[in-house]
Amino acid sequence: MPANIHLKDVAALVGTELGVSRWFTVDQTMIDRFADATEDHQFIHTDPERAAAETPFGGTIAHGFLTLSLLSAMNFDCVPRIIEQTMGINYGFEKVRFMTPVKSGARVRGRFVLDEARFRGAGMVTIRYNVSVEIEDERKPALTADWITIIQFDPKDRPEDV
Rank of each mutant, 00 (worst) to 15 (best):
E54F: 07
W23R: 03
D9W: 08
L68H: 12
H6T: 09
Q42E: 08
L71G: 02
M30R: 15
H63G: 02
I83N: 10
W23K: 03
S72M: 09
F57M: 07
S21H: 04
I44G: 07
I61Q: 11
G59P: 08
R109Y: 04
A106V: 08
G105L: 04
F98S: 00
I44L: 12
G59Y: 06
L13S: 05
I83V: 15
V10H: 12
M99Y: 06
E94P: 03
R97Q: 00
I82F: 10
L18P: 05
L70C: 11
T25A: 08
R22L: 01
L7G: 02
N4M: 13
R22M: 04
T67A: 11
F24P: 02
G105Y: 04
N90G: 08
L68Q: 09
T55M: 01
V10I: 15
F24E: 01
A52N: 10
A12V: 10
Y91G: 02
P48A: 07
A73Y: 11
V26T: 11
D40P: 09
L68E: 06
F34Q: 02
E84F: 05
G15K: 12
P2T: 13
T60A: 14
A35D: 06
D36W: 08
C78A: 07
D40E: 06
D32W: 07
T46P: 12
P101V: 03
G15F: 07
L66C: 02
N4P: 01
G88W: 09
G19D: 01
T38E: 08
G110V: 12
M99A: 14
E39V: 14
H41S: 01
F24V: 14
F65S: 01
V96P: 06
H41M: 05
P2H: 10
A52H: 11
V108L: 07
E17C: 07
T29W: 06
A53C: 00
K95V: 03
D47A: 01
L7S: 02
A52R: 15
A53G: 01
G59I: 01
G19Q: 02
I44N: 11
L68Y: 10
R109G: 05
A62L: 04
F112S: 00
Q28S: 09
V108E: 02
F24T: 07
M74S: 08
Q28V: 02
F98Q: 00
K95A: 00
F65R: 12
G64F: 13
T67L: 11
A73C: 10
G88N: 10
A12R: 14
T60V: 09
H63W: 13
E49W: 10
M30C: 11
Q28E: 07
V108T: 04
E49H: 09
R107Y: 03
D9C: 03
A51G: 12
T86A: 13
H45W: 14
F57E: 09
Y91D: 02
A52V: 06
D36T: 05
M87E: 01
